[in-house]
């Protein structure tokens, strides 16, 4: 498979110009910022360190999954994905262009969220590695949602279970007495991300977050494989 930097840059430029005029994408990007403001109102509880990772988790997951899903579903809805796939652009270039734009959005949203909630006092290298893996997972899942949904607005509905389970599950379920559900939440990358950040805040190192890191790596591999499988099958279909 070929990869042209020229075509990749063209895709990024187009996606950026299009996205900053798309109210639905701006709403998706704005939601984590709003949540960061709300969580910032919460009084510090030294016993509940997981709350320190929530602004980053929400920024990565909502921006990564929903901005990506919206971009892809709209291409299908407006029949522009077909036009792209009938140009010399390969599916890797198209997907990379969208993912790069989603990453740009995510970085901006993370920066704003951290400016509001403050940067957790952790090893920055581990924080970056964990964040990149989580972003890759959510962008891959966002791509799958975008491909399954027939329209941009349907992508929000298709993605709702993901939002509830992957994002709000690790935030709220640990406080509820639901052991069966907690077993599922335990293996989710979002929960593993929160556990890893909590361990890092408590001066933990690689030995403490190794299991969480492995979980995220496995999720990255599986979600990327799923993404390419679905993309190959559904790219032309509405």
């Amino acid at each position: 498979m070929t990869f042209s930097i020229r075509r990749f840059r063209a895709m990024v430029k187009k996606e950026w110009k299009d996205s900053i005029r798309n109210p639905q994408i701006l709403l998706n990007a704005g939601m984590p910022i709003l949540l960061a403001v709300l969580f910032n109102q919460k009084e510090d509880e030294p016993s509940d360190l997981t709350f320190l990772s929530i602004p980053i988790l929400v920024a990565i997951s909502i921006t990564g999954a929903f901005v990506q899903a919206n971009m892809i579903a709209e291409e299908k809805e407006k029949n522009t994905l077909r036009s792209l796939m009938l140009s010399p652009a390969s599916k890797l270039e198209v997907l990379a262009g969208k993912s790069a734009t989603t990453t740009l959005f995510a970085l901006l949203v993370i920066a704003v969220c951290l400016a509001i909630s403050g940067v957790p006092d952790v090893n920055i290298v581990y924080l970056i590695i964990l964040s990149i893996l989580l972003l890759l997972i959510f962008m891959a899942l966002g791509t799958v949602i975008g491909l399954i949904a027939r329209t941009a607005s349907e992508s929000s509905i298709v993605g709702l279970p993901l939002l509830l389970l992957f994002i709000f599950g690790p935030i709220f379920v640990p406080n509820l007495d639901l052991p069966a559900l907690m077993k599922i939440i335990d293996v989710l990358p979002s929960h593993q991300f929160m556990l890893a950040i909590t361990a890092l805040i408590q001066d933990g190192g690689l030995s403490q977050i190794g299991g969480n890191l492995l979980n995220l790596v496995l999720w990255t591999i599986v979600s990327l494989a799923l993404c390419f499988l679905v993309y190959g099958k559904k790219r032309f279909d509405k």
Binding site: K13, K14, R21, R82, L84, S87
Partner: peptide
């Protein structure tokens, strides 16, 4: 039913494909 990018100008729509086709 070939689609176009409705939030982009006519020029920007064509500029994208100029770059894709070289």
């Amino acid at each position: 039913n070939s689609g176009t990018y409705e939030r982009l100008s006519v020029y920007d729509n064509l500029a994208l494909f100029c770059r894709l086709y070289g």
